[in-house]
Write a protein that binds this DNA or RNA. Structure first.
Lengths: 225, 225
DNA sequence: TCAAAAGTGTTAAGTTTACACCCATGA
DNA sequence: TCATGGGTGTAAACTTAACACTTTTGA
């Protein structure tokens, strides 16, 4: 084994995931209570330590997979959190990621198995370590992104109504938007395709279901909500 | 010493700084050739390892201070880079930061002392490890930021002409803008103050010098270039 | 006297916002 | 039949973009 850097210190490196979902008109994240010390019983993000055989990104994907059973999830790094005493146990540097999943893809069984729950972004409790800071950063990063990149679709089922899309947008941005103006903008985006399917769960009349066409997007690549 | 996490591995954690300056109409970064193995002689960002008694942010500030002698510099984290083999020596996780400095504050003596030089962003060579990726990310992050936050002023002397400000903006964005439209926008920002001083180095006629008023900005907080 | 950079307004095009009513259906 | 959410267009306000000439001065 080489040892170029032996005079320097090494640190534990963890990943923490802010997992967003959208349900009942609310933006939610998946959090649970810590099962181990330090901080046992405190609300916490789901995370894990980086292993020697994986990159940090791989670690984040592994942790997400362990919790959700899902792969190929939209996931972005928020950054590294490295205050000396951020972890009450020992010095741990944590790299935070946020992920967007469709709550329907996540089974209730798994919720109980890992004792995590969907908590509305409006009701986040005080959390372990600097996790509140991570959540705030994730939220603000996502807010900036949602108007310029088509990330909404990761939070919705494959087929969705325009009202659902609008409610999601409103939940992320924290403000209401005009229905007609919103639909006008959607109509200009050829990669948001109207299907012939109709959803009757949300209203008596029924609403057309739409679908995000990834391929059509690649070509056009203009997005502005 | 506590040992909550002893079953996990520890890693070297470094910081790398992308230090931007603006000179002769070009956006430049400060890079040098590695003095030590692995990678001796390769072009590299300036960096250092995180010490036990400092946070990652503190480490970045220390490294920047070591190189420039400057404190209280505008500096933002880009994120963590953690591929397994990113460093040819041993596994090192690196947290990249970008900093904006005024080239006039940086002495030529220091350039030589640390054998670093200002290289135009257009002429960045192939660099050590994943440093090219870091630079690309820094550039793109800065580009996004410059239109919505008043960061330009960190790259300029305290007093600057509108042409300098415009050239900087153009260098960062990589495209030219209309002089009259640019000045119109500047005029609407009360916190960019015209002074009575005139700079005659850039033209025979001379141009008014302007100054960024940080206090006036705090109150208004609208920025759009 | 001329080359070089500084400085200055107007108009057309495009974008954004505000706004109200009819439709289809199940209960 | 009525309450509920679905669906649609236009005009005014605002923002952005395009555009050309005069001024000052040192060389």
């Amino acid at each position: 084994m080489t040892s170029y850097y032996q005079e320097y210190s090494k640190y534990f490196v963890a990943v923490d995931c802010i997992i967003f979902g959208f349900d009942e008109g609310e933006l939610r994240i998946l959090i649970g209570k810590r099962k181990l010390n330090p901080g046992r019983g405190q609300w916490s993000l789901y995370g894990g330590f980086v292993r020697e055989e994986e990159s940090i990104d791989d670690a984040a994907n592994r942790v997400l997979f362990e919790l959700t059973g899902l792969r190929n999830i939209y996931m972005r790094q928020l950054g590294a959190f490295g205050n000396i005493n951020r972890d009450p146990g020992e010095r741990v540097i944590s790299v935070a990621y946020y992920a967007l999943i469709n709550v329907n893809d996540y089974s209730h069984t798994l919720l109980e198995e890992h004792s995590v729950e969907w908590v509305s972004i409006k009701d986040i409790p005080t959390m372990y370590s600097d996790h509140n800071k991570m959540i705030a950063r994730a939220r603000s990063m996502m807010q900036k992104t949602i108007s310029s990149e088509p990330i909404s679709f990761n939070l919705l089922p494959e087929l969705f109504t325009l009202t659902q899309l609008q409610r999601l947008y409103e939940a992320v941005c924290g403000e209401e938007v005009d229905k007609r103006n919103f639909r006008k903008r959607v109509k200009e985006m050829a990669f948001i395709e109207k299907t012939d399917f109709i959803d009757k769960t949300g209203s008596k009349r029924g609403a057309y279901l739409y679908r995000f066409n990834q391929k059509a997007f690649q070509k056009n690549s203009i997005f502005k909500l």
